[in-house]
Amino acid sequence: MIEIQSRQNAALKHLTRLGRERKYRRSTGEMLCEGEKMIEEALRSGAVLKTVLARRGWESEMLREAESRGAALYCAEDALFRLASEVESPQNVIFSCMQPQWDAAALDGKEQVLLLDGLQDPGNLGTILRTAEAFALGAVVLCEGCADPFSPKVVRSTMGAVFRLPCVQLPLKEALDLLKTAGLPVYATALHEDSVPLSAVSLSRAAVIIGSEGRGVSDPALCLSDKRVIIPMRGRAESLNAGVAAAIVIYEMTK
């Protein structure tokens, strides 16, 4: 294990950039993860770990396992260690690994798919991915305008689901063409005069679109959908948080 002694260290600067720059993550194909739980999930899921930075003095069998799989191991005192972290109170390990690669082929044979249309809040996105994986949803598709699924906040919110759940990034029309060709009806969650309750449609084989936090499902997505659905609510609130709405839809799809 190599001890980092300067903020100019190349490995430290690499981890720092991964946490802060989407363009850099895209160019390297890596993402930044933090914490003992995440490295445990990464190792269990077979993720390819690249650079592992431990707080000086922290020991774990997981470090040795990461090294045996080809990861480069570093340690640093607290002041330098914190430079690579994206949270106020870092845990004992920060690491980079290769981003899971999911293309359109990951949708083949999937019978329950959630599409996210312009969902920009990283916390909501991470929660949705975690919920989808927990209920064994077939796949989630990120269409135009969505948050980066490999940003630290999203990755942290998934609690490991990011390593396992098929999460495909595709333009909306291309994704819907694929799903409709596979025979899946497409429903858009939207409050409209012709909307029907979610329980009124069959979701055993279906694709459902969830819109952005601010404007909901976009007009192009509404036009491409087969039907509009709503989550019936008895209270006075006009809408739900996108993450909550998605969780209800996922539950209804997979129950």
Rank of each mutant, 00 (worst) to 15 (best):
V196S: 03
R44V: 09
R228V: 00
G160A: 07
A106D: 07
M98P: 00
P90N: 07
A190E: 15
E41Q: 12
R44S: 10
I128W: 01
R26F: 11
G70M: 08
L119Y: 08
M253N: 01
D226E: 02
P185D: 00
D194Q: 15
S151G: 15
G35K: 05
N92T: 07
E252P: 04
C143H: 04
V154S: 03
V201H: 07
A66T: 01
D103T: 14
R22G: 12
D194V: 02
G126M: 08
E67F: 10
A72I: 13
D117Q: 10
R44E: 11
M98H: 07
N9M: 06
T189W: 00
D117F: 09
D177Y: 08
E86I: 00
F95P: 04
E213N: 11
I128P: 00
S89R: 13
P122D: 12
L32K: 07
I39T: 01
R69Y: 06
C146K: 04
R17E: 15
H192W: 14
L184T: 04
Y24N: 07
K23H: 13
A76R: 06
A188P: 02
L83I: 10
A182N: 08
A175S: 05
A79E: 15
V154E: 03
E3Y: 06
I4A: 08
A247H: 01
S85E: 08
Y187K: 03
M1Q: 09
G19F: 09
P171T: 00
E144H: 05
A42K: 04
D121C: 10
S151Y: 11
A104K: 15
V52M: 07
P152C: 13
A206K: 09
V196A: 03
D194H: 14
V196M: 03
K50W: 08
Q8C: 03
V229A: 05
E65F: 08
P166I: 00
I128V: 15
E36T: 12
E213Y: 07
V244S: 01
M1R: 12
G138C: 07
E111H: 10
T254H: 00
S218K: 04
S6Q: 14
S60P: 09
A221K: 04
T28A: 13
L203T: 06
D78G: 03
T181L: 12
Q120I: 07
G19D: 11
L119C: 12
G138Y: 02
L176G: 01
